[in-house]
Amino acid sequence: MLDRLIGFLSSGENLVFFVFSLVAICGAIFMISLTRVVHMVMALALTFLSLGGIYITLGAEFVGWVQVLIYAGAITILMIFGIMMTRHRGEAETEPQRPWHNGLLLVGAIVLFGILFYVIQNATITPQSAPVDPKDNTLQIGQLLFNQYVIPFEIMSVLLTVAFIGAIVVAKREED
């Protein structure tokens, strides 16, 4: 067991994956278990960052940087703004007393993970071709986005515009 773990960690890529995934899981668990809202957001930002690192080890440099920019940057900041706007007065979160709900939920989540784990362990996914390791990931993504995926890209830009306008309209004070 330990031999296999050491063997696994002897590869550089594996070591990086191990560290990043450890950080991501820890961040997620802190997000669940911490009591102050701002700390929760910070813990999740850690998870987002380490996920970005994992993306880069997977050869998706562009997506990794986008992850860092949008999730760890924009979304986290947005969340913190949201928390400030809704005035939490720094008090500790008091979780509602729902023992049945939480107990069932815990069991459900663990069983779901068990099923997923079982399926993942039993699945045999064999690549039909060797993993591509493109030299210039960002260039290729750019070319694909503006050729093959140009229509989804444009639709996505419209969606973003609509979403931001909508957000402004919704959050705006009525008397303004």
């Binding site: 562009f62 997506v63 979304i75 809704t86 986005l145 973003l160 979403a163 931001f164 959050a171």
Partner: peptide, 23 residues
């Protein structure tokens, strides 16, 4: 990767609208 980019975009939009609704 391109799909995950779209996903990130949608998530950003969702968070923006969600926060607006919450406020």
């Amino acid at each position: 990767q391109i799909f995950s980019l779209f996903n990130i975009t949608v998530a950003a939009a969702e968070v923006a609208v969600g926060i607006a609704i919450l406020i």
